[in-house]
Write a protein that binds this DNA or RNA. Structure first.
Lengths: 246, 246
DNA sequence: ACAAAAGTGTTGCACTTACACCCATGT
DNA sequence: ACATGGGTGTAAGTGCAACACTTTTGT
């Protein structure tokens, strides 16, 4: 930015901007991609469903504000919120996106494993927080429908060339569970043998937990367990098939 | 965002935030990646080099502000600024990034063809605007060094899986020029026959200008001319070689 | 015995890589 | 003639899609 502010500038001279954060937090549950929504307890859009979020405080970075609001508004465990991988999506700045005043919102995305339902009574401005299948969110408050659509597009693309999919899994997981993440987010079917080769051939994507195994569907051979590895990028990418949808 | 603002909220009650835009505008010139910088005419950081940008006005979106500031501060042709492909990079919101007050900055990137040097006397808050090789920018004002580094990383990655490289080229260009863009941004050498096959095999990446040809280095066979096509994504991607740097 | 889920092998096609070669133009 | 840059051909190597097959468990 450049200084069109002269030496004796008064920060209160202009109509102020408010700066908020909004979070699109996803999980994979029962073969469906879910997003964490809250029901608004205040006007405007009182009673409507919205992405969790809120105002950035004067001495807080956007990322800290995002963690604070997430902890306040949803029942997510504090430990999880603290360690969560947050990623900036983009900033929404259209002048009329909030009827009250000029609000610029910095949107974040996060991926979490399947968790117990958040505590029923929300904190802060939220009535309650719920996991909602992304296909059944209906209309959201403000421009949150658009933010959610942008976030979905982004995470779909990120699965192709990053190791982010493990963020949807519990600390120890099977390759079948990891494959289900891809199939759910992309709404496709993947070839199991090829998927497993691809994942195992990428150094640092997953690490075997020696000796550990777990039954998945009640029947069948127990699957070996893996942990997320240190790798972050996926070279070469795991390309999403274009043809056959699920 | 959620409404912690009660009905009778006074927008002036809190310490206000200022919202700015910053632009990392790149071009390829003489085999080097250049970025557009301005010299600050005002405190703070008076006399230092910085990315162009400035305050978002009360009724303006961030993208509109970016175009306005770019036109005001640099001598870039109005037509070009209007049609420019701007892309949000990310938003920088650390509390102390500007010593004057709380400033949240939305950063954009843009790619332009090699242009004549901008008009010498800058407008607005800029002394003057100049194209500077990215390797020789030195220290920049505020956190602009970090913004510039993030922008470089992003455009390098974008060349792999989008058709964005044509934005660096004039309206009609040769495949040699397009290849030079990749080689400059990635600092690598690419195999010419393979590069041309790859580009031509991607539908909508480039379109031949029938019959047109141009001499490039003064010598050699005149090269056929191409225009940017309608495609925006590059499937499969054009992967950056990892080994041999230029 | 059978179903279900994990895991292994193999084959063929598609694509990329690396490099040899030809073409058109200026000096 | 030859240097320079554009453009074509091709053979070896690589990676991946597709699908058949084996293994281990529960009922």
């Amino acid at each position: 930015m450049t200084g069109s502010i002269p030496a004796g500038y008064d920060p209160y001279a202009y109509e102020p901007f408010a700066v908020t954060v909004d979070l699109a937090v996803f999980t994979v549950r029962a073969g469906q991609l879910h997003v964490l929504l809250i029901r608004r307890a205040q006007e405007p859009h009182r009673g409507a469903w919205a992405l969790p979020g809120g105002f950035v405080l004067p001495r807080e970075s956007a990322e800290r504000a995002a963690r604070r609001e997430l902890a306040e508004e949803t029942g997510l465990p504090a430990r999880l919120v603290g360690e969560l991988h947050l990623e900036q999506l983009r900033t929404y700045s259209e002048p009329d996106r909030d009827p009250r005043m000029r609000v610029v919102s910095i949107a974040f995305t996060a991926l979490v494993p399947d968790l117990p339902e958040p505590s029923e009574q929300g904190g802060g401005d939220a009535d309650r927080a719920r996991w909602v299948p992304v296909e059944r969110t209906g209309e959201l408050a403000f421009d949150h429908g658009r933010i959610l659509a942008d976030a979905r597009t982004r995470i779909g693309a990120k699965l192709e060339y990053t190791c982010l999919a493990t963020a949807f899994c519990p600390p120890e997981f099977t390759l079948g569970e990891l494959q289900a993440v891809y199939e759910t987010v992309w709404d496709t079917v993947l070839d199991r043998p090829n998927f497993r080769r691809k994942v195992l051939a990428t150094p640092g994507f997953v690490e075997a937990v020696p000796g550990a195994a777990r039954l998945t569907g009640g029947r069948g051979k127990p699957a070996a367990l893996y942990r997320a590895g240190p790798a972050t990028a996926l070279h070469p990418p795991l390309l999403r098939p274009e043809g056959h949808r699920r």
